[in-house]
Simulated assay, not measured.
Amino acid sequence: MAKSSTKGLATVLSFEKKIVLSDGLMYGTTWENRQTQATALPLHEKSVRGTISNRLKSAVANDPAKLNAEVEKPNLQTVDAASLTMEQDTLKVTFTMKVLPDAAVPAACNVENHKEEILKMGKRYAEQYGFGELAKRYALNLANGRFLWRNRVGAEDLEVQVKAGNTQWLFHSYDYSLKDFDHVDEKVEALSEQIESALDGKLPYLLLEVTAFAKIGKGQEVYPSEELILDKGKGKKSKVLYEVNGTAAMHSQKLGNAIRTIDTWYNEYKTGNGVGPISVEPYGAVTNLGKAFRNPKEKCDFYTLFDKYSLGADFDSPEAAHYVMAVLIRGGVFGASGKE
């Protein structure tokens, strides 16, 4: 076996994700006929002549002649876009979500003793707390339609249907908050019980079919995922959207980020200075804010907690235990550096 770090941690350590999502396909329909009629939404190109609106250097901004010369320049752009037709007022998004057990079983681990302690940690978590709290939060993020992201904003009505085998639940998304996980009804409880059964191994797996409807208005623009173009100099478009076989779509990663937006256990949230639930990440990173809410200096990041618990220490609190297990469900590569 490879040499481990002096702390007894594995240098090769990874966990497979236990919540696996498909891409989300986007369709257009009407609210009245949403159950029976829907057409795939294609992408279309738009070429527009915009204005110069970026922040200018002081020498240009403070000189009227230079400013006029600058704003006269055309800002030509070719972008992808997607929208409903003028006969459609409702966006339909559909995807599948698979839930798997054995969150605390490493996919790869090069230190046998550490692996044994990790397995003990997982068993300790299941016995002390169980997966009920995590399952409830995942279920609520399905029910409230958080995964629609910008497509959720300004919708007149929101509805999410979740199907597992012959069982189906219907959620009116505005009945469930995006800010906390306090409100649970019988439907959320039933769905969370299914998710919990899969996470703790009572079921070999759970496959959910999720369909969301957002009544956003006739002809309104919808928002698929945007592709990351590493070398924009070679492309003719300034914005490229994601599509699957000609149908506008949302990345599985973006859907997954929303489903795991369950972390209300970080310090700022507890003190009332947080930004609401954040996605489960090793450092509590929220990229659009440019901030990590779980700083290692505060000893609340994943690695600090995981290293302690996976070497035999008791959980400090239910909140810390839930957070660590949620990161393992997320999956990732967590090996310690052999140079430490």
Score class of each variant (00 low, 15 high):
residue 217 G to K: 15
residue 249 A to M: 08
residue 206 L to M: 11
residue 234 K to E: 08
residue 237 K to V: 03
residue 230 L to H: 01
residue 229 I to P: 02
residue 223 Y to P: 00
residue 238 S to I: 03
residue 239 K to G: 00
residue 220 Q to S: 14
residue 238 S to G: 05
residue 206 L to F: 08
residue 246 G to P: 06
residue 249 A to L: 05
residue 200 D to E: 13
residue 259 I to R: 05
residue 256 G to P: 00
residue 220 Q to A: 13
residue 231 D to W: 00
residue 230 L to S: 06
residue 239 K to F: 00
residue 243 E to A: 15
residue 218 K to S: 14
residue 246 G to V: 05
residue 243 E to Q: 15
residue 242 Y to V: 07
residue 241 L to M: 13
residue 224 P to Y: 12
residue 219 G to W: 08
residue 222 V to I: 15
residue 217 G to Y: 15
residue 223 Y to C: 07
residue 240 V to N: 09
residue 203 L to W: 06
residue 233 G to L: 03
residue 231 D to R: 11
residue 212 A to R: 12
residue 256 G to A: 06
residue 210 V to C: 12
residue 201 G to S: 08
residue 265 W to C: 03
residue 231 D to H: 07
residue 226 E to R: 13
residue 241 L to Y: 05
residue 257 N to W: 04
residue 228 L to A: 09
residue 236 K to W: 02
residue 257 N to C: 04
residue 255 L to D: 05
residue 243 E to N: 14
residue 210 V to R: 10
residue 258 A to R: 10
residue 224 P to A: 10
residue 233 G to S: 09
residue 255 L to C: 06
residue 232 K to H: 04
residue 226 E to C: 04
residue 204 P to D: 14
residue 217 G to D: 15
residue 256 G to Q: 05
residue 263 D to K: 10
residue 263 D to T: 07
residue 221 E to K: 14
residue 251 H to W: 08
residue 209 E to Q: 14
residue 252 S to C: 11
residue 207 L to I: 11
residue 205 Y to K: 15
residue 222 V to L: 10
residue 234 K to F: 00
residue 235 G to L: 01
residue 200 D to H: 09
residue 244 V to Q: 13
residue 266 Y to I: 04
residue 206 L to D: 10
residue 266 Y to W: 04
residue 256 G to H: 05
residue 256 G to W: 01
residue 242 Y to G: 00
residue 227 E to N: 10
residue 235 G to Q: 08
residue 220 Q to I: 06
residue 229 I to L: 10
residue 260 R to Y: 04
residue 239 K to V: 12
residue 235 G to C: 00
residue 207 L to K: 13
residue 235 G to M: 04
residue 244 V to M: 07
residue 248 A to L: 02
residue 247 T to Y: 10
residue 201 G to T: 07
residue 240 V to M: 02
residue 241 L to S: 04
residue 231 D to S: 04
residue 254 K to W: 03
residue 264 T to N: 06
residue 226 E to W: 01
residue 262 I to N: 15
residue 204 P to S: 14
residue 260 R to L: 07
residue 202 K to N: 10
residue 228 L to C: 00
residue 226 E to H: 05
residue 217 G to R: 15
residue 254 K to L: 10
residue 242 Y to Q: 11
residue 201 G to P: 05
residue 238 S to T: 12
residue 245 N to I: 01
residue 235 G to P: 00
residue 212 A to Y: 07
residue 258 A to P: 01
residue 220 Q to N: 14
residue 242 Y to L: 13
residue 241 L to I: 00
residue 256 G to N: 09
residue 224 P to T: 11
residue 253 Q to Y: 07
residue 239 K to D: 01
residue 247 T to C: 15
residue 220 Q to M: 12
residue 253 Q to D: 01
residue 235 G to A: 09
residue 213 F to W: 15
residue 249 A to H: 03
residue 224 P to F: 09
residue 266 Y to K: 07
residue 264 T to F: 02
residue 204 P to K: 14
